[in-house]
Amino acid sequence: MLAIIKLECVRGERRLFSNLSFEAAPHTLLEVRGQNGSGKTSLLRNLCGLLPPAAGAIQWCGKDIYTIADDYRSHLAYLGHLSGVKDELTASENIRMSAVAAGLSASAEQIDAALIRLGLRDFRDSPCKALSQGQRRRVALARLCLSVTRSLWILDEPYTALDTAALAVIKDLLESHLEAGGIVVLTTHQEVAITARATRRVELGQ
């Protein structure tokens, strides 16, 4: 259960949004919409706990996320603009190492399954600098397959640079996560129909 109470965000000298309140219960898909520069990314970084808000509070199960910091992060999976994929490492090394650093378990079978699911089987052992933009994005998204134990997914523009096949996989991943009781918060400019028990929209910059 994620609750946002009277959140305000100031970047530099601009107040991006203020007095923003909403809640997201399990099974909820929360879409954050708005023009470029309306503060979507900042809001997601607020929610992750990367960017302390200028005012207001963010609560997870009734507790402020900054007081339960490490505990909150063990419920969280975040995918930002930067994919966190290292050029020097192979696709499977990237997935395994980022998962373990994030405190997730990653067996060889799980990693192989994730690679296959995202159509990266042939690139398993090739260094990521040889991959295309979309393929790197898939490597980053493959981490989500290992994050099913994390109930809150926060995704910044998850659909960019993906082809239709990958898009279908992501849609599938999100839907099964929502069905299992997860919460997904995402920003997007694309219309992708995700079936969820509850879908909410937050419009920024109005």
């Binding site: 990367l50 992060r73 969280l76 966190g84 290292k86 650093a101 994030a102």
Partner: peptide
């Protein structure tokens, strides 16, 4: 490349 923010979220 974003690895650092992933570490900060571990």
């Amino acid at each position: 490349d974003g690895t650092l923010e992933q570490l900060a979220l571990s």
